[in-house]
Nucleic acid binder design. Structure first.
Lengths: 233, 233
DNA sequence: TCTTTAGTTTAAATTTACCTTAAATCAGGA
DNA sequence: TCCTGATTTAAGGTAAATTTAAACTAAAGA
């Protein structure tokens, strides 16, 4: 992700550059509006951070030019409160602003949020279902609760996530590694035993006869799958 | 979401079709106004993209027909600037327009925006209730006071807001971050501990036995939810 | 049948998340 | 400015969730 920083004070500019680079962004620093404009024409910029007060072409006028050619998210930095009203009130098309002095964490959070928002805006996705059902099992995502035959299951968080994941992909066999990666969110580390223990706990809460599980089937040598009651294997 | 594309130039039509299908929309392409009209009568279309200049039935006249039977959002494509004024000026009921040549991102952004806008239009939120009740708890928004079993609770402002928010969404689980964002109004910064302290204070004022809360339930690893007395968990 | 491998279960150890209290800080009114 | 009450910070304590470890059981192959 390429971020343009336009800020005339050298110290702030460097601080911003270093902080954002640490987070893995590619940063293009500019010391005034004119330099920024050149960068925007030459590079594909995904987000711009602009100071309002700058020599050579101030933030407002730079934004106006940017908006003629792009809808990229723009975050303003300003020292004066009055500027803020202007930023929003004039409908210049700024996406967010931050008053100086600001905390670096705050800025980084807002940068991430704007990039995410813009990404979602350009890539609309179907809203996820709030309620899942498969056979006797049902999950209410809003309430974060799971039911079996309308009986509320008291699941621990990891158990709940594990069940939800299986219910989103019923009848599909997952290896223990895949389950770990999906539920724990860790792409590299995994532990078979941990999964097995959790599966065991889940079965205790769901299955009538844990010796012959009906819902969570073991596929020897492969992994587990969620099965709908009514057929065999 | 079903999108109708009406465009006589084959290359542009294909480009639009492919780009929108990539984003997960179902696309119905038509090469002239007459074909478009047949599709509209046969399918449930959620948004239409119309070229102004077309053989057989031009964009303006097609829109006029559409408006006789539907209020679906319509985006116009046009090569000539004069057309734009006409589109808006004549009050034909177009929702947006784009001048050729346009960027695909721009178009996709506008499609998403129109669909969202229309969705909000069709699903207006109901006016908020002035009095909320859930189980033994009651809130009088006009007086900003909360009651438990008709006993007035002496809540601090933040506590009141927190309770009110939970009462507006009972049984739904909120993370501490969500609660902070909703009650404090800050979209980026949040602090888990602050929420926990406030929940603790609230429980002191509402719950009989703070060790085993009945109203504000903790969902470990997730957050909190408001629960109606009468069941377990 | 014996051996090996894979899976299950249980209990203990560890870690993490949460609760509570008190002290510090902040904001608004006198 | 000081005072007051509301809110936040900080720290210590506690309980629940998760992981580890080990003993046990079932299945597949020789």
């Amino acid at each position: 992700m390429n971020i343009l920083i336009t800020e005339d004070e050298k110290d702030i500019r460097n601080l911003l550059t270093i902080s954002l680079e640490e987070k893995g962004y590619t940063v293009f620093p500019a010391k005034n509006g004119r330099a920024a404009w050149e960068i925007i024409k030459a590079q594909e910029i995904h987000l711009a951070i602009l100071d309002v007060m700058m020599p050579e072409l101030d933030g407002f006028n730079l934004l106006r030019r940017i908006r003629e050619i792009s809808t990229l998210p723009v975050i303003f930095l300003t020292a004066r409160t009055e500027d803020m009203d202007k930023i929003l009130g004039l409908g210049l098309g700024a996406d967010d602003y931050l008053a100086k002095p600001f905390s670096m964490n705050e800025l980084i959070a807002r940068v991430a949020a704007q990039l995410r928002r813009n990404h979602e805006y350009l890539n609309p996705k179907e809203p996820e279902a709030l309620s899942l059902q498969y056979g006797d099992l049902r999950i209410d995502k809003a309430a974060c609760s799971a039911y079996c035959k309308d009986r509320l299951l008291e699941l621990h968080p990891k158990e709940y996530k594990l069940l939800a994941f299986l219910m989103e992909n019923p009848e599909r066999v997952f290896t223990k590694k895949q389950l770990y990666n999906a539920v724990w969110g860790d792409d590299y580390f995994y532990d078979d035993n941990t999964i097995m223990v959790h599966i065991s706990h889940l079965r205790n809460k769901i299955e009538g006869d844990t010796q012959n599980p009906e819902y969570i089937k073991t596929i020897r040598g492969l992994g587990y799958k969620l099965h709908k009651i009514g057929g065999s294997r």
